[in-house]
Write a protein that binds this DNA or RNA. Structure first.
Length: 482
RNA sequence: GGGGUUGUGGGUUAGCCUGGUAUACUUGCGGCCUUGGGUGCCGUUGACCUCGGUUCAAAUCCGAGCAACCCCA
């Protein structure tokens, strides 16, 4: 590299994580900061990542009985107030519309922070008999939560893109199965599409979604030792059905109250992806997420230009015919070194280099984005070879993520050990927990770590609560969070 | 929630202390050159975060606001 041209990432991921993250997001063309604090402009390459998330999840949703719909972005205050806990839970961060044109509104409108209050009343109208159940509605939209804390592109923005699913069921069992099915699908998205290694569990009672019976969660460990809540799936019990009157007639013509769920995943998932896999060269994308999976960079001199470009175009067509998202970078005004750097910055998982040598030998050079590993392969059977390499790249990324998770789960049996372990290493610390919020507060006040997750398995790992020493009811995972 | 740092063409930045003509690189655009890790040359467009104050004069000093980043809770 000659001179510091600052086209690439200049901050270190390890030492200046915030600045590094900001540069990756902007320089790899994912997003810009909007003029208002806490908002971003999502650029085409960033939006393509969201579309990749959508394509996978939406397919799975539809395969499991979900229909997409769309509800207004405004919710009348009187609707919001029907579920008391929703109001209390979201009140500090609701944005309000009070004026339409030049006229003051009779009733102010909330910009949705989540849509239970507008969707559930309609589900109530649409559900008459047991034959209408289960009913599963999803919408892809944005919501607004006027966060007071620091914002960060994709991780925490005042407006964010997400999907929110809302379902109604006959009974508790059916609704609980739904809750877990959606959690499984979120876990699958993280594991099989984004090459991240999440944990799954429940939120402690004091951190549930307002009004929910149970909130289940996907948690993902970041390289700086903080945990990200990657998605949530709520079993809402009967509280919303009661508040919004979702009742149905069962086979015996008796009126029953439905059980409901809601579940959501936001573009914070993209934040977790970037934070985990990107490096000091820029973005790194797992192949299923990458808008461009393979880039071909031709290398030629004046006298063999046509030959090399012709060869490169053949390769491109071979891969394109095989369904690989491939791009041939035949720009004349850039040399190969520039292109290498640029595509690395943009996170393309696999690069093919072809020059006179490769043409002569009927070969290609393949370079893996995550680690720069270079191999030479035959041109014959290229499509299959490339698929194998894409899988290898995925495996490398997943292995990194898995290691990150495993190395960051530690155990502690006393208050001081919890504080010391998180203070020194970050990451998760698991311990027995009596179930009292005070014991979390004790830790939170000291070191700003909270209980992010309680595993599903019933037996606590220790007999006593790691904080107060009373008998433990469950295991709790403490961590600092985003 | 509290504290700190910073804000100059699209990006990176000099100038600010000590007020007076805004510096360079890069990108973009036009042209030439050629290509195994950010190549070279010529030409060209483009900026002092916002509002207020001090002053003959403000990128520079003062105040407020907005924004970004960092640290603590």
């Amino acid at each position: 590299m000659t001179g510091d041209q600052d086209l690439g990432i200049t901050a270190s991921k390890e030492h200046e994580t915030g600045e590094w993250y900001s540069q990756v997001v902007q320089k790899s063309g994912l997003a810009d900061y909007a003029p208002m604090g806490g908002f971003i402009v999502t650029r085409p390459r960033g939006y393509a990542l969201w579309e990749a998330v959508q394509n996978h999840l939406d397919g799975w949703f539809k395969d499991s009985g979900v229909q997409n719909a769309y509800f207004p972005m405004f919710i009348p205050e009187s609707y919001l107030e029907q579920e008391k806990e929703i109001v209390e839970g979201f009140d500090p961060e609701v944005a309000w519309v009070t004026q339409g044109g030049h006229d003051e509104l009779d009733e102010r409108l909330a910009v949705r922070p989540t849509s239970e209050s507008i969707i559930t009343p309609f589900i109530s109208q649409w559900v008459r008999s047991h034959r209408d159940l289960p009913m599963r509605i999803n919408q892809w939209c944005s919501v607004v939560r006027w966060e007071a804390t620091d914002t960060k592109p994709f991780f925490r923005t005042k407006e964010f893109l997400w999907q929110e699913g809302h379902t109604a069921h006959h009974d508790c069992d059916d609704a609980w199965d739904e809750t877990m099915l959606r959690l499984d699908q979120y876990e699958r998205l993280y594991t099989d599409v984004m090459a991240l290694a999440p944990l799954r569990g429940k939120k402690p009672d004091h951190d549930k979604f307002p009004g929910a019976d149970t909130t289940t969660t996907i948690e993902v460990m970041m390289p700086d030792g903080k945990s990200v809540q990657g998605a949530t799936s709520h079993y809402l019990g009967e509280s919303f059905a009661e508040a919004f009157d979702i009742t149905y007639l069962d086979e015996d013509e008796t009126e029953q109250t439905a059980h409901t769920t809601s579940w959501g995943l936001s573009w914070r998932a993209l934040g977790a992806l970037i934070m985990t896999h990107a490096d000091d060269q820029g973005l790194v994308l797992p192949p299923p997420m990458a808008p461009t999976q393979v880039v071909i960079v031709p290398i030629f001199q004046e006298d063999n230009r046509e030959t090399v470009l012709g060869y490169a175009e053949e390769l491109r067509k071979t891969l394109d015919d095989d369904g690989v998202r491939v791009h041939l970078d035949d720009r004349d005004e850039r040399n190969p070194g520039f292109k290498f750097n640029e595509w690395e910055l943009n996170g393309v998982p696999l690069r093919i280099e072809v020059g006179p040598n490769e043409v002569a030998d009927e070969e290609v050079s393949l370079v893996h984005r995550p680690d720069g590993e270079t191999t030479t392969e035959s041109r014959t059977g290229l499509a299959e070879t490339v698929q194998e390499h894409l899988e290898t790249v995925y495996a490398k990324l997943y292995a990194t993520a898995e290691q990150l998770r495993e190395e960051n789960i530690r155990e502690a049996t006393s208050r001081n050990e919890i504080l010391g372990t998180i203070g020194q290493h970050g990451g998760y610390v698991k311990t027995g927990w009596c179930g009292e919020q005070d014991c979390e507060t004790e830790i939170k006040d000291q070191i700003a770590a909270e209980i992010v997750m309680v595993p599903f398995d019933d037996e606590p790992i220790h007999e006593d609560c790691g904080v107060c020493g009373e008998p433990a009811e469950t295991t709790a995972y403490f961590a600092k969070t985003y």
